[in-house]
């Protein structure tokens, strides 16, 4: 049997539905005349599992899992990791430092742009955004230990 995209997707949704039910253990279902806080989530988790099963049953209509192209996955993973690191340091180092660093790394490490262009662009664009938000839109941005 060929493993198809909808086999994987359906299984993921079933697992998610089961997880929701497991996490809802302490939420009361209540009664029909007074539904509890677990009433809707458990019904929806049930629907998710049911639809997941239908997806698997009808998986023949979907393309084989092996045919899904993942050639952009490296780019996506790299962007996610770099953004994740920036988010981690966002409140510690402030907007200016983290965003300049994030843009610079994205441009140099992923896009292979020349260092001086990347530096100029990162400082210029982030600086302009900072000034626009703080002075024009009067929306304060996160500051770091250096006061900006």
């Amino acid at each position: 049997m060929t493993l198809r995209a909808d086999h994987v997707a359906g299984a993921a949704f079933i697992a998610f539905g089961v997880l929701v039910i497991a996490l809802s253990g302490d939420l009361p279902m209540g009664e029909l005349s007074m539904p509890g806080s677990g009433f809707m989530p458990k019904i929806l988790a049930g629907f998710t599992i049911a639809f997941g099963i239908v997806l698997i049953v009808r998986a023949g209509e979907s393309r084989p899992f092996a045919e899904i192209e993942w050639n952009d996955a490296v780019h996506a993973a790299a962007v996610t990791v770099i953004t994740g690191i920036a988010v981690y340091f966002f409140e510690m180092l402030g907007f200016l430092t983290t965003m300049v660093a994030m843009m610079f790394v994205l441009l140099v490490a992923i896009e292979r742009r020349p260092l001086h262009y990347a530096a100029l662009y990162s400082f210029g664009v982030v600086g302009l955004t900072y000034l626009t938000f703080v002075y024009v839109l009067k929306t304060p941005l996160v500051t770091g230990p250096f006061g900006f």
């Binding site: 994030m102 994205l106 990162s122 955004t129 938000f133 941005l141």
Partner: peptide, 14 residues
Amino acid sequence: YAYLYPLIIMFCVI
């Protein structure tokens, strides 16, 4: 686009 998307990510974060 290589210059544009880092800018978009920054706006997403803000």
